Amino acid sequence: MLPCRARLVSVLLLFLLALLRRPLPVACLHVAADAPLTATEHRQDGAAWRSFQQLLDARRGSRVAGLSELKRYLARFGYMPAGAEHEPATDAFDAHMEAAVRRYQSALSLPVTGQLDSATLDRIMAPRCGVGDNGHGATASVSLATAGGAVSRFTFFKGEPRWTQPDPLVLTYAISPTATVDYLPPETVRTVFRRAFARWARVIPVGFAETDDYDAADIRVGFYVGGHGDGIPFDGPLGVLGHAFSPRNGRLHLDAAERWAVDMDAETAHSAVDLESVATHEIGHVLGLGHSSSPKAVMYPSLSPRQKKAELTVDDIEGVQWLYGPNPGFSLSSLYQQDSSMATGTSSWLAGSASLVSAVLVILVTLL
């Protein structure tokens, strides 16, 4: 009798272990999951920012070689006092550095520890947009409760600039015929940008018309290396991917030193960057949006190599609609409902699993 009972207990324990190890349902909205980030893999193909691995776990009071470079990085993107990027920096982790790290962690939705933990260094070392966060280039944030119950995290350039013309608002854009990358056919690049512009046009009453007249276009797109005449030089592979200027400037620049890809299934380079994701992000800046602190948003400042993130989230859409109003042919309600149904499905799965676990535990207690 005892061997049979022992076998039954063993079977129940194995069943309970398998149940607890079952993955939760995924509840993401139109966004591919972030690619894994580690603090050692992102700088293998470029020296845009030297490896900050030696800074792991640095905190206030420590002094580590490389902190001065990190201070310049944080100053560049708006987390240190104005002008700090061009001032002499030391390798001391002082109170100003701790405050900057906390601001960075908060703005990028990381655990706010004030220390250079692995999650923070991984995000710092990830490729990103060259437009600053937290007021660098002067963005203004908003915090709004959405109809779906979430809190919006989108931001704008200072003054909430937007394109204004008599209705209907149609902006022309052109891809530079000379500032290109030789391995991507011009028509392929144009197709990518058509899709990227169409995503924004779907949600706001703004049209985009492609033109061959580059100099006369409202929005001018080009690939450049290093210094290229706008005072914001690019820094090589896997550093700053691109940058764009607020309305009505219209310039959208991409770093030609990156390995740009349009089809990750066919692309073999582990350092490849998805062109459509970056194009969609930079168009958001051209329209007046700053960076979002929502990691799933297109307007989040960083993008991992080989990551695809081109579909607009609720946060992206609410931000651009704040500037231009909603497109009469588009409604956010379906996205809210989808998000809600996913959350409900996850809750139901958890509730059902809890009940089953309880039943198994009761049986085990009875047998023991």
Results as ranks from 00 to 15, higher is better:
1 M>V: 10
4 C>S: 11
4 C>R: 07
12 L>A: 14
13 L>W: 05
14 L>K: 06
15 F>K: 12
21 R>P: 01
24 L>R: 15
26 V>Y: 05
51 S>Y: 03
53 Q>H: 15
53 Q>K: 11
54 Q>T: 13
56 L>F: 06
57 D>Q: 06
61 G>T: 02
71 K>R: 15
72 R>W: 00
73 Y>V: 04
77 F>K: 02
79 Y>F: 15
81 P>Y: 01
81 P>I: 02
82 A>R: 04
82 A>M: 02
94 D>M: 03
103 R>S: 02
105 Q>D: 02
108 L>W: 10
109 S>P: 01
110 L>M: 03
112 V>K: 11
114 G>T: 00
114 G>D: 00
118 S>V: 05
125 M>S: 10
131 V>H: 03
133 D>G: 00
134 N>W: 01
138 A>W: 01
141 S>H: 12
148 G>S: 14
148 G>W: 10
149 G>V: 07
152 S>R: 13
157 F>H: 14
157 F>V: 09
158 K>F: 10
159 G>K: 14
161 P>C: 09
163 W>K: 06
164 T>A: 07
166 P>N: 09
173 Y>F: 11
174 A>L: 02
176 S>T: 08
185 P>R: 11
186 P>T: 03
191 T>F: 03
195 R>T: 14
196 A>Q: 05
198 A>Q: 10
206 V>S: 07
207 G>E: 04
212 D>A: 12
219 I>C: 06
225 V>R: 08
226 G>D: 04
226 G>R: 05
226 G>H: 11
227 G>S: 08
240 V>H: 02
241 L>D: 14
241 L>E: 07
250 G>Y: 08
250 G>K: 01
254 L>I: 08
255 D>K: 01
263 D>R: 05
265 D>K: 10
269 A>G: 06
274 D>F: 11
277 S>P: 01
278 V>H: 05
279 A>Q: 02
280 T>Y: 04
285 H>C: 09
288 G>V: 12
293 S>V: 04
300 Y>P: 07
307 Q>T: 01
318 E>A: 14
318 E>C: 06
318 E>F: 09
320 V>M: 04
321 Q>P: 14
328 P>Q: 09
329 G>Q: 01
335 L>F: 11
343 A>Q: 09
350 L>K: 11
352 G>N: 12
352 G>A: 13
358 S>C: 10
362 V>K: 10
367 L>C: 03
